[in-house]
Design a binder for these strands. Structure first.
Lengths: 146, 146
DNA sequence: CTAAGTGCAAAGTATTTGCAATTGG
DNA sequence: CCAATTGCAAATACTTTGCACTTAG
């Protein structure tokens, strides 16, 4: 009989598709999934060290790349020159980004699946992924200065 | 009376909003506008050196940033870890990217303006920019291997 | 003329890699 | 066991910066 932790482990095992289930991988995935917002490699590294002080930044990068390739996390390229990551969400969503205060809102819209379908048909592509990123000015920034 | 080159110059002058119109800036903008595809800083640098061998990579980066800030070029973050640039197009378009062969198709769809409008209204944002990037497998790659 | 722009070299970030030591299956 | 994974340090890739010289306006 399988307890809760065992079940979690088995699920992750499956996600890893034959790769080894190490403490570092388990920790990092947990941290990404628990993260309130999009996290970057460096923040993840700092956070992970609180639990496993000997973890290295290389491992963080290697693991992020692995998770990305396995489809466990999504990598985002916001305005910055480094990447942000988030656990792959149960359903596809997009980002709305305030250029003034930096706030990022996640939203969904069925327009995106329609877009995928329309464009896939038009160009005979099999569309598998989307990255939709709207920028603008949020209500409080509109109200405040300018 | 104004000849063709003079008119071009005046137009660029206006775009630069008071910044100086240098040979490097004129060259770089011309190259970006003439580029068949999205170009990155390094390719632009190599290309520019054919015309102005003493141009420096710093100038390329500085100029790209200036053009981006002025809205003359758009900066894209594709899968790679560096940026690609293109002259700002007359109308907003999106990208469809083959994960297998790397080909990038530009397309338009009115779904995107509807998305801007819908989301702007929903969150009371003033939406100013969009980056829409679909990934998938193109017809020839679907036909070929897998 | 003179402030803005440039080239060069050096520095700064973000990310990857080689390798010996460790460890999951 | 032993190949996959890790930590560490060093390397690489991309981008920015300080400064003396040049140049557009």
């Amino acid at each position: 009989m399988v307890n809760k932790e065992g079940a979690e482990r088995a699920l992750l095992q499956q996600h890893l598709r034959g790769r080894r289930l190490t403490g570092q991988r388990r920790l990092l995935l947990g941290l990404i999934q628990g993260a309130q917002a999009h996290i970057d490699a460096d923040d993840l590294y700092r956070l992970a060290r609180e639990y496993e002080p000997r973890i290295s930044l290389s491992t963080v990068y290697r693991t992020l790349r692995l998770f990305k390739d396995l489809g466990l996390v999504d990598e985002h390229h916001f305005q910055e020159d480094h990447h942000h990551y988030e656990a792959r969400a149960p359903h596809e969503h997009m980002h709305l980004h305030c250029l003034n205060c930096g706030r990022i809102i996640e939203f969904e819209s069925d327009l995106i699946s329609r877009l995928k379908e329309e464009i896939g048909r038009r160009y005979n592509f099999k569309v598998v992924g989307t990255e939709v990123h709207l920028t603008g000015v949020c209500p409080s920034c509109r109200a405040g200065g300018q």
